[in-house]
Design a protein around this nucleic acid. Structure first.
Lengths: 345, 345
DNA sequence: CTGTTAGCGCCTTCAG
DNA sequence: CTGAAGGCGCTAACAG
């Protein structure tokens, strides 16, 4: 504990604006003005105020300020996992877009659970954020109701919900995966396998799987070689185990697509460990273009979905809606993705 | 924009406690009591209140509450990078420890810059967090002063500062790296190389390097094979480039230690790509025990430092200090680390 | 350019 | 178990 702290008796209460005002010989209102960028304060007064602020070690109390100004300066963002670099890239994009707007990020993660998302939304709304960014379009009914009641701009990302709450910045996970299938089919592969999680929780994961199946159907190729493996997120280790089962069951599989680069990497390394040549004996592709896929040996084919840009764009749209007149139409912004062919296919 | 929103004229203002109270036929005070767990409210009143809350879609405004209760329910945490799974594991540990305490995390990242840390600390202190968790012991003078003035519990993590602000939950990065050197020296390696970043910004990185050199000196082994490579964080790709330079310059190097598993992985893959056998031709070890090191081929030797536990323990200590009488002594809690020997050495 | 007045929405405190 | 009064620290709105 520093000096005297906590709620000890004899504690020195933090200085308030009134303390600064007294010390600088002005009113609290002038201090308030001096501490913001806009409003006019004489150079002389400003200097005295800043000196007093420094002397006292005064730090503005935004909770009090936002109560009276009715603006909290918070923006909430909810991602599935903070440990997944795809989503933390999105979080970085959000933070960077928020820089210099005076808005502060309230970040939470759901562990891929809509129930946890609901709780998070509730606890975040208690902080009265001026806008909120969500991942995906699957929410509980109560979460949806709370969002609508909150009457703040909402941006759903990483997906294209069929029934958006408000704005959307995302892409079709199914279409992206389908594109990958078509690209690989064009190279001559016909016997495709798939590794992903159980479909119940991770909506993006199940959309990718659906896109995989749909693309194969359209190409008239067999669709059955699918391994579903545990609840998301599917780890590298699970990818390794899954490819063993998959090749065990369907030994003539030529190429395996995975729900993400992480499981793909696990699968890739396991194949190398077992002496399989990639892509000669078995080709492998991931999803998400994580750092790892550009660096592995062999380098991995994957699909880049612009995680950082999603975050930056979502935040930009949100800021516009917050600062705008509130009349922005509901809007769906599609973000791009592209297949990155590397050595593993 | 949902329904009517933003600051449009004709907007429906969010319901307040008074609205709920009116609807439930009680006073605002009773609503306030009903919405918390403690305090006594009759079952009958509580039911009516909850019904009104539901009808109105009322969500408590914590900013107002904390102004009067003088407790914000915020805890701040600052990590170097949100994209590094070691630190996001720590963040998860913090979040998990905070669960069910009613405390909410305010998370920020510095990109390894003490200047950015200073700005973050300032903007977070404006939210009046009840405690703060930092990474490392290097702060600007002004940051230190602000922390001291704030008179809230502080926990520095991931390091053992020579002059702690308050509490510490960490380990010696230098000692951990030295242990790795000794472990490998015991296996017979004598010609060690090292890959890390420039030392100016990442204090943990430079401590690891110092530990590397110190351990070799104590063993009477040569210490010169060090490649410094860019500002942190050192990427996988930089690890790949660095090992090429290193082996180019010192071809007889037997084992290379890296500042983290990420650069070590890049180095490992690059060696495999060039047809080098690992560990026969060149052994490689990382630091941090990222998921990747357990899954790569060959699996990588590294050192596990309990990232998640650091976060959980730091938050637990912080909560104790917050809830305690404020008299907790300054305390240094050492966390454990252990070498994990795998196939790459 | 500066000050005054009032009140943001809730909780503390004290009375019933 | 419930209510009334008052104020947390700041800023909007208006007056000078």
């Amino acid at each position: 504990m520093i000096k005297s702290a906590g709620s000890k008796p004899g504690e020195i209460p933090a200085p308030t604006m009134a303390d600064v005002a007294r010390k600088a010989g002005v009113s609290a209102m002038t201090v308030s003005r001096a501490l913001r960028q806009n409003s006019y304060v004489s150079e002389e007064a400003r200097e005295r105020i800043m000196a007093a602020v420094n002397d006292l070690g005064y730090v503005l109390d935004q909770a009090a300020g936002s109560l009276s100004s009715r603006k909290t300066g918070f923006v909430a963002a909810i991602i599935p996992s903070i440990n997944n670099s795809n989503f933390s890239d999105t979080a970085r994009g959000i933070t960077d877009a928020l820089e210099n707007t005076g808005l502060q990020l309230l970040l939470g993660y759901t562990d891929y659970s809509v129930e946890r998302e609901e709780k998070l939304i509730e606890s975040m709304l208690r902080r009265r954020p001026e806008g909120i960014i969500l991942t995906g379009g699957a929410h509980t009914a109560r979460a949806r109701r709370m969002l609508e009641k909150a009457a703040i701009p909402v941006v759903e990302t990483w997906d294209i919900p069929t029934n958006p709450v408000d704005q959307v910045v995302g892409f079709s996970n199914g279409e992206a995966m389908a594109l990958l299938v078509r690209t690989l089919a064009a190279k001559g592969y016909t016997r495709f396998g798939y590794i992903g999680g159980t479909t119940s929780r991770d909506t993006r994961g199940s959309q990718r799987r659906a896109g995989f199946v749909r693309a194969l159907e359209e190409l008239g190729l067999p669709t059955g070689r699918v391994i579903s493996f545990g609840v998301p997120p599917i780890s590298m280790e699970q990818g390794a185990q899954a490819i063993v089962s998959l090749l065990d069951r369907w030994p003539d599989t030529q190429v395996v697509l995975c729900v993400s680069d992480l499981s793909a990497f696990g699968a890739l390394m396991e194949c190398r460990r077992r002496g399989l040549r990639v892509p000669e004996d078995i080709a492998i592709a991931g999803f998400g273009d994580y750092e790892i896929s550009a660096c592995s040996h062999p380098r991995m084919t994957t699909i880049n979905v612009g995680c950082y840009d999603i975050g930056q764009l979502a935040a930009t749209k949100l800021i516009e809606a917050i600062q705008g007149e509130g009349g922005t139409a509901e809007e769906i912004t599609l973000t791009g993705y592209r297949v990155i062919e590397r050595e593993s296919t």
